[in-house]
């Protein structure tokens, strides 16, 4: 029914990667060779990745030193490093904290609120039919366009930034979760109905547990989108946070600061995503240790 566009497994579900490790079996020479080749290949890929990174950094540094590129505009790895070294001078940690706080609050409210709304819409077929066109329009609207309105309504501060993050991440959660709920295996639904399950029991015994994957997929999307919302909000509000630092650095031509902030931002984004992945693994193992 609803198409959120993000639901088509962009984050491919990594299932059964360590399932068929036949440890109990005797290992044949062919298997050993296969495993060795596999490991070799993995190492090759990792090595090339590291090499590429170092190469680019070196190229950047050398061209900057030789004056081929203007380090004032393009910055330069050593200068970025220096910026990191003077973290306390730039209040980088403070801004990092602000951004993390806003992202986490936006993420939590967005995930919980979005899921609750999805449950309500699943519960009442009528409601979901009524809201369908509105949700579709809201989903395709670029939420950043609402920025000025949000600032006027809730004031230019942390709240506006969190609302911005919510606006961006919540609708996707609603659509994603609802899509999962609606597509629950109808045979399983029929099975619990034959025991006379009511709507609440149907939800708690079948619909929700079979959508744990959906939930985590939408959390993974959500954490990224919350960060997008927070940075966009900080651009607009311009008081604190990594987004503010980037805008400020750009305005006063401190490109080292901009680059350092961007690097920190990408590390934060990766860590947050990884945290969701770890949480997912932990919860999945808790619910059903066999998988």
């Amino acid at each position: 029914m609803f198409k959120s566009g993000v639901s088509q497994g962009r984050w491919e579900w990594k299932k059964g990667t360590n399932q068929q490790s036949g440890e109990d079996q005797a290992v044949s020479p062919e298997r050993l060779l296969f495993l060795e080749n596999k490991k070799k290949r993995k190492n090759q890929i990792r090595f090339t990745q590291i090499f590429l990174l170092i190469f680019i950094l070196l190229l950047w540094e050398v061209t900057a030193r030789l004056g081929i590129i203007d380090s004032f505009i393009m910055s330069q790895p050593t200068r970025i490093l220096k910026t990191f070294a003077n973290l306390s001078n730039n209040d980088l940690m403070l801004h990092l904290g602000v951004t993390c706080y806003e992202t986490l609050v936006g993420f939590l409210i967005g995930a919980c609120g979005g899921t609750c709304i999805a449950i309500a819409l699943w519960w009442s077929d009528f409601l979901s039919k009524v809201f369908e066109p509105f949700l579709v329009v809201l989903n395709s609207l670029p939420k950043i366009a609402l920025g000025p309105v949000i600032i006027i309504w809730v004031g230019a501060g942390t709240n506006a930034i969190i609302v911005m993050a919510l606006a961006i991440s919540m609708i996707v959660t609603v659509l994603e979760m609802l899509n999962g709920f609606v597509n629950t295996d109808s045979e399983k639904l029929k099975m619990v109905k034959t025991f006379g399950a009511n709507r609440l029991q149907t939800f708690t015994t079948v619909v929700f547990p079979s959508n744990i994957h959906t939930l985590f997929n939408s959390l993974k999307i959500n954490i990224g989108l919350s960060l997008v919302g927070v940075i966009a909000g900080e651009f607009l509000v311009s008081k604190a946070g990594l987004g503010y630092l980037i805008v400020y650095g750009g305005q006063v031509f401190k490109l080292d600061l901009v680059m350092a902030s961007v690097i920190i931002l990408s590390i934060v984004a990766a860590l947050m995503y990884q945290a969701v992945v770890i949480l997912e693994r932990w919860i999945t193992r808790l619910i059903s240790p066999s998988r």
């Binding site: 399983k188 025991f195 006379g196 029991q201 015994t205 079948v206």
Partner: peptide, 27 residues
């Protein structure tokens, strides 16, 4: 009345014991 469908419809996240007692739990 007990109704058995084509597929076993066991719930993968429940143990066998919690699967076979599902009807009792619901009722």
């Amino acid at each position: 009345i007990g109704y058995m469908l084509q597929r076993d419809n066991l719930l993968e996240w429940r143990t066998i014991f919690r699967n076979v007692t599902l009807g009792l739990e619901i009722q």
